[in-house]
Simulated assay, not measured.
Amino acid sequence: MLIHRKEWDKFLTDLHLNVSNSSEIETIDETVAIFAKNGEVLATGSIAGNVIKYVATCTKGEQSAGERFNKIITELMNRLAQKGIYHVFVFTKPMYAKSFGYLGFKELARAEQGVLLEKGRPNITDFLSSLTEKKLVPAGAKKIAAVVMNANPFTLGHCYLVEQAAAENDFVYVFVVSTDRSLFRADERLDLVKKGLSALTNVSVVSGGDYLVSFATFPAYFIQSDEEVMDFQTQIDARIFKNWFVEALGITTRYLGAEPFSKTTSIYNQQLTEVLSDVIDVKIIERKKADDNEEIISATAVRAAIATNQLEKIRNFVPETTFEFIEQHLQELQARIKGGQKTNGN
């Protein structure tokens, strides 16, 4: 039996789940449900990529909510396996974390509003081991820094931030966000960052994998308030880094770029500092200005120039390798914008 959208909305709303965020709902690949004999919805769950979301069960009928929960998760895991997906994330309320734990999910990070868990391989331990096994950090290095960036695209501002970290530390990890929701694709951004930083011998550029992602993409359907949603997303992002990356990679300092234009990023910087400051140093570096007009370098301005075909305006904003890429792929980038890819944000 198919579950209709109106039924699904009402069932989830009655159980205090937020169905108003269209961008979260649009990512859903499949939804399953359990029905009573009269057709009433008793439980449901959805998958989006390798994320399980919108899981809800009621207490009506003979079967317990726990039994229905187990059936829904088992069915979703089977469907993911059929797609060749064996590593799965779930974001849920803290009160349900134990239920997922019974089914083999492992907690990665927790905030007051919600919990992130994962199941399957390769997991976060495998990801971090893959970095340490490469022996990127030179022997004897004591001051190890980390920079996380989206680099959409890589600018001289990003370069300046990493140069400051490289000058003050023995080694620097530069993690490039792997979420593919930006104008520049994840592989393009990673390549441009590597090329732009190739002269820095104590810097290694790596993908953030499934863990250092754009915090705004974290599902928050179980939270009603927009303010709480952002707090949850930034807290989880910060605690993943604190709980797993700091000790495993020996990181002593996290570098952030000051953000005079984006309130969201400014709040993120503040919360990240609050979460991390008891275990490592956090340094916020003022933004670099363009040499010719003292204008603050911004990736947003670069994307706007691409959209309006005004590349000369941003020649002093990006390294030559980034500028060459933009020139060579201008039509494709503009086509992505015309196709609906946003140029604002980060």
Rank of each mutant, 00 (worst) to 15 (best):
M1C: 11
L2I: 13
H4C: 10
H4A: 12
R5W: 12
E7T: 11
D9R: 14
K10L: 14
D14H: 14
H16R: 15
L17W: 13
S22G: 03
I25F: 10
D29N: 12
T31K: 06
V32S: 01
I34W: 01
K37W: 13
N38R: 06
N38H: 05
G39M: 13
V41K: 08
S46I: 09
A48F: 02
G49A: 08
K53L: 12
K53Q: 15
C58P: 00
C58G: 06
T59F: 09
G61L: 02
G66T: 08
R68F: 01
N70H: 05
T74R: 07
N78T: 07
A81Y: 10
Q82F: 10
K83M: 06
Y86T: 13
A97N: 01
K98Y: 09
S99F: 00
Y102M: 10
Y102A: 13
G104Y: 05
L108E: 00
G114D: 05
L117P: 05
R121H: 13
E133W: 03
V137N: 01
V137I: 13
K142Q: 09
K142G: 08
I144A: 04
A145P: 09
A146Q: 06
A146L: 11
M149G: 00
L156A: 11
A167H: 14
D170Q: 01
S178M: 11
S182H: 09
F184C: 05
D187C: 09
D187H: 15
R189P: 04
R189D: 00
L190I: 06
L192Q: 05
G196P: 03
N202I: 12
V205R: 02
V205T: 05
V206G: 02
S207A: 11
L212Q: 04
F215I: 00
A216P: 03
T217M: 03
T217N: 07
A220K: 06
I223W: 04
D226Y: 10
E228Q: 14
E228N: 12
E228F: 06
M230Y: 04
D231Y: 11
F232D: 09
I236R: 03
R239A: 08
I240S: 07
F241Q: 09
N243L: 13
F245D: 06
E247R: 15
L249Q: 08
G250T: 13
I251D: 07
I251Y: 03
T252E: 07
R254Q: 07
Y255G: 02
P260N: 04
T264Q: 02
T264E: 05
T264G: 01
S266N: 11
I267H: 04
Y268L: 01
E274Y: 05
V279Q: 14
I280A: 04
I284H: 03
I284V: 15
E286Y: 06
K289R: 13
A290D: 11
A290N: 12
E295A: 10
E295I: 08
A299K: 02
T300R: 08
A301P: 00
A301M: 03
A305N: 04
I306Y: 01
I306G: 05
N309C: 06
E312D: 14
K313C: 00
N316E: 09
N316M: 11
T321Q: 15
F323P: 08
F325D: 13
E327W: 10
H329G: 11
Q334R: 15
R336C: 03
I337E: 04
G340K: 08
Q341K: 14
Q341M: 14
K342G: 11
T343W: 00
G345F: 04
